[in-house]
Design a protein around this nucleic acid. Structure first.
Lengths: 203, 203
DNA sequence: CTTCACATTGACCGAGCGTTCAATGCTACA
DNA sequence: TGTAGCATTGAACGCTCGGTCAATGTGAAG
């Protein structure tokens, strides 16, 4: 018996949520139209009625993931930190904590990352996301360098942002494969020791 | 007509090489017994005769990849560098260059990484590899800290090694998705600016 | 040369995949 | 109430996959 109708938008988000549940738990490879339909308690045909193709469903899922969860928010409690380097470190800490606390998200993120190798559109979108993320670090990086120009001689804002992002991604990778032995505080302590020294010496 | 015979060892490496070719180009998902057999110019049955299961083939491929290519070699031209921090930076530079120059390897590496989320044995092996890799950085990290203890107050050798590995993995991730815009020299310059300052101030 | 263990082949199987589509209900509107 | 249009269903199709297996050729031992 064909079920109730629903608005286009409602159905799409319902299906996308189901797709997210499946993909973030079982992996992108295990994402099946049937599995998504079952999770959403719909028929397989309906999923492909709203997303014409499995590929389009995956792209929509990627957009959903990027828009929902991977945006860097520089909140007020961070902008209010006076010393620029402390701001950067606080931002690093929060990002690492956020990623480590959402292993399913990281997992899905890297699944898409791997898929980007084969899938051109996915690659393009991931590149854009990476650029956005790096760009979000730029202002703070710029302030850090401006506060102590002689200490960071030869370091560009772009370079510092890129290093920060690399570091975060590296931590995410590590926490993804070994979430139990991954100690955020040890990382932050080491980073703090390395970067913090620079600030301490200026004061 | 059933073809020529060959020794067990020879056949296994022949198949493994074919598997590596397929997986590193098309991705682990695209790894098919038929594709591997075709690449090795053998029948599909023979692949499963030597590796009883596709899963066992994948595990063997993982071992092959790890043993062949992901070992950290601390060569003499690096150990001969007098200043410990310079040694560490030289090692970082060489590792980043090595990874960036073998995109197919990185790709396969991260494919396995993603698979480790689902596949327990893969995860275990990747964890062990990560530990080995980190451990290889420990001696140099220890020397760096020992050379300037007051500068690196609160930083442990383990922490410094972990940070170094995270940084490398982060760069690898970045270069994987965006190999064209990835500038190793900019990274090294930024890193050098950050870490190098510490050394410069001691001298 | 004969024999025999076994490496090798490729057709075959069942399962699961993405996708299609005729049939079927819902619902807004007349 | 009737009906037109569309959301919804699930069976069906064609395909590829991992895995099996009877048949066949090979090479070493006797």
């Amino acid at each position: 018996m064909p079920g109730q109708k629903a608005s286009e938008e409602a159905r799409r988000t319902q299906i996308l949520k189901a797709a997210y549940e499946v993909a973030s738990r079982k992996g992108l490879d295990a994402l099946t139209v049937r599995l998504v339909a079952h999770r959403a308690k719909l028929s397989t045909g309906l999923v492909l009625f709203h997303f014409k193709t499995k590929d389009q469903l995956i792209i929509a899922l990627l957009d959903y993931v990027l828009q929902t969860t991977t945006v860097l928010h520089v909140t007020e409690d961070i902008t209010s930190i006076p010393v620029p380097l402390d701001r950067l470190l606080a931002l690093l800490r929060r990002e690492m904590n956020r990623l480590a606390s959402e292993p399913r998200l990281i997992r899905l993120f890297f699944d898409f990352w791997a898929k980007g190798f084969t899938h051109a559109l996915v690659r393009t979108k991931m590149q854009a996301e990476l650029d956005r993320y790096r760009e979000a670090f730029r202002p703070i990086a710029h302030e850090v360098l401006r506060a102590e120009p002689e200490r960071f001689a030869g370091v560009t804002p772009e370079g510092l942002s890129a290093v920060a992002v690399s570091f975060i991604k590296g931590c995410a990778v590590q926490s993804m494969i070994d979430p139990e032995n991954f100690d955020i505080e040890e990382y932050l302590s080491a980073t703090n020791g390395l970067l913090g020294q620079l600030a301490a010496q200026t004061a």
